[in-house]
Design a protein around this nucleic acid. Structure first.
Lengths: 415, 415
DNA sequence: CTCTTTATTTCGAGGCTCGAAAAAAATAGT
DNA sequence: ACTATTTTTTTCGAGCCTCGAAATAAAGAG
């Protein structure tokens, strides 16, 4: 109730083990001395923890990495994560696309397959059959020294529930409440996490560019739909039930354009690719949006918008205003934070930037810093992939490779 | 950086002590056996912790409370917080109002003073002089057995920064960046917390009605301005820099009505008392809003609105729409949560409810539960007071009365 | 006045981190 | 070639912590 968790002596070891593994995740080769410096733990403790981790086969001593050659004193011996202790699988499910990859425990790619599948007409069974086939093939061709599969991480476009590892709703396929987690978990005998693709993007940014994405930032995916992954106070921010912050469905214009979610006036109904195309096609903003927009068409529209005034330029202007309006509201709730724009929409940033900035400007009326930092990443797929991989590996670090009874991670529960 | 806190063996004791104190805060009289049941700690541990707490004078055995009379076996002996171990002060600063109260460690009122002061014309020095006088008087008249002052908690209307215990901006007084915390801390030699009034309301609701306000909920204050206190995942949600989620300044209508914050189109510019009066007075929505609205006038307008159609009815309709629009966006970001409407606006809920519900309806397009729970609390002051008190006492429980080195609470840092 | 029941404390086992001391493994210097 | 120096890593004991089992305390029941 009001009383939270009770602490036990071995929680201490669990936490500090996690610290050691996190240090190793960040730096690949690290001596015990380095770990002492990074974590702040005492040398004795680091020694005890690393000894245990080596005994369990989770990390290895590596004589190759001659960290301190030609120095006086006993040389440091480098430690590294043992890539062969486990294998994880990631599955990205996006519009007409399934992408599965096998990684080792160090995060190196073992095997990979990309398949184009018509998701819009696919039933849950169709999707699961494709994913299952891909995973089976990859697992069958794994080299002999690869570790056993220990976790699957899915990033799907749509609304997901981390607790039940379920996809609640998705624009890319007709079925709802698909319990991917439960089904894959039963099939492969491992825990499965299902998360929103944008959450994964945020996760990836935090790991690849911690300089810019540390405590507080948002990754906004401008693509077929509009989603957001949010980090606040150094922790992923998830909704109460779903696992993503639905930036795209914040209200931009009451009773406005029809959104694919069935409601009116969402940001997405102005700023997504289908909204832009609907407008440039001269269709009514309340008309049913297209289910799929191909990149070529979208880019042609963008080029016409760049060429000069016209309905295309206006469409992008509206899109920028919608995004700006959402950011302005978001910034009121949580104060201004750095923004990463990801996906096709990031490729047309030149067409929407001015309107975004104009609406956001003066976000803090009382004189807080009004500067708006936006960086663009036109290709979302590598980020989603990397986010799935990182969360999956972090999950292993925390749960599977922690001694004693397992608790839940803050990020995603496991079936 | 990516590595968080390192755990030490005595962190365990600190956490479990906090658990025991939290149990006692919730129930006043509790035997050691009760504490065992509530916390899940072992009897031995509870014994060790309570023995220490008694030795330090933080809790007392109380023979009066005959919990288990006429039962077989050794009788339980009730434990209770020692009211005389500490005194805390709360200060509520609102429009033309300063309210200071002294509480003992059990949360009972020791002394109290309410003073009406013209805050709109008051300089920082004026405000501090008034608060200082009030506190000095109260402290001077304290009974002999009262504990020493150990913490001050301020709840102010406006934007605050918990980290620096500063009021960044407030509608009730002209000065900005007022370091209340620093100044009061120097004067009274105790730590001082400065928080937004709405955060305090949320805190109070969670303690007084945990049934309805547990993990996730929002308290929205509809008064002179519009603010929000938010609880997510059982933790107070604060912005990145400020200490309150500025619901009132989310964007409702781009380029819309003039808000007191200087921007246009904020929710507050439609739903606050000054917005409603501006509209019923027939003034342009871009005209400068009134600085103060007295309750009488506001109630008269409400009564005219209830009497039938007219500009008054329309003004409340607009207010409801603005609030509804904000909730719709909020619910997109964090999923629907229970709402507490607090302050004068809660007294006119009948006039705004329909419009709020209409706009919010269908918040989750994919079939999530659409029900909107709203409860009303027309008088905000007792809640603000109680919130300040609870956070202050919890602060003592966690920081001052925890053994070993002190860390920061998640909620508010201390000077 | 003894038995039963319930609450609380005591005691020992098994964790954990840490500082100090010891051991290990290299270079520097003669 | 051999010792001194330097740096890394391990070992050991002190001092925490929680917990289960056993002991003790304090009542009512018979």
């Amino acid at each position: 109730m009001l009383i939270d968790e009770i602490a036990r002596p071995d929680d201490v070891r669990r936490q500090n083990r996690r610290l050691v593994l996190a240090a190793l995740r960040g730096h690949d080769l690290l001596s015990r001395t380095d770990i002492v410096a990074q974590t702040g733990l005492s040398a004795s403790t680091v020694s005890a923890i690393t000894t245990a981790l080596i005994a369990e086969g989770i990390i290895n001593e590596s004589r190759d990495g001659d960290v301190t050659a030609n120095r006086r004193g006993r040389p440091q011996v480098a430690l590294t994560l043992n890539p062969e202790i486990a294998t994880i699988a990631t599955v990205e499910l996006a519009l007409n696309l399934a992408h599965t990859v096998l990684f080792d425990y160090k995060g190196q790619v073992i095997a990979e397959e990309i398949r184009r599948i018509p998701t819009l007409d696919a039933t849950t069974d169709d999707l699961l059959r494709s994913i299952g086939e891909m995973l089976d093939t990859l697992l069958a061709t794994m080299p002999a020294n690869a570790g056993k599969l220990m976790h699957i991480s899915m990033g799907v476009q749509g609304v997901t529930d981390a607790a039940s590892a379920t996809m609640l709703w998705s624009p890319i396929t007709p079925d709802i409440n698909v319990a991917f987690g439960e089904i894959l978990s039963a099939r492969y005998g491992v825990s499965v996490a299902v998360a929103n693709d944008c959450s994964m993007i945020a996760e990836a940014l935090r790991w690849t560019d911690p300089e810019h994405y540390a405590e507080d930032f948002a990754a906004i995916l401008l693509s077929h739909g509009i989603g957001m992954g949010l980090y606040l106070k150094g922790k992923p921010f998830l909704g109460v039930q779903s696992s993503g912050a639905e930036f795209g469905h914040m209200l931009h214009a009451p009773n406005g354009a029809l959104c694919r979610c069935g409601r009116h006036g969402c940001i997405e109904a102005y700023a997504s690719d289908y909204a832009i195309l609907r407008k440039t096609a001269g269709l009514d903003e309340k008309s049913q949006p297209a289910q799929d927009v191909d990149a070529m068409t979208f880019n042609n529209v963008a080029d016409r918008a760049r060429a000069g005034e016209g309905v295309e330029r206006e469409a992008f202007r509206k899109a920028g205003q919608a995004i700006g309006s959402g950011l302005r509201s978001l910034f009121s709730l949580i104060d201004p934070i750095p923004i990463a724009l990801v996906g096709p929409g990031a490729g047309v940033f030149d067409l929407i930037e001015a309107d975004i900035r104009e609406i956001v400007s003066g976000t803090t009326g009382w004189g807080g810093k009004p500067d708006l930092t936006i960086r663009c990443y036109p290709d979302e797929h590598p980020l989603i992939l990397q986010g799935c991989m990182m969360t999956s590996l972090l999950h292993l670090d925390t749960q599977l490779f922690a001694p004693g009874d397992l608790r839940e991670t803050p990020f995603r529960r496991v079936i």
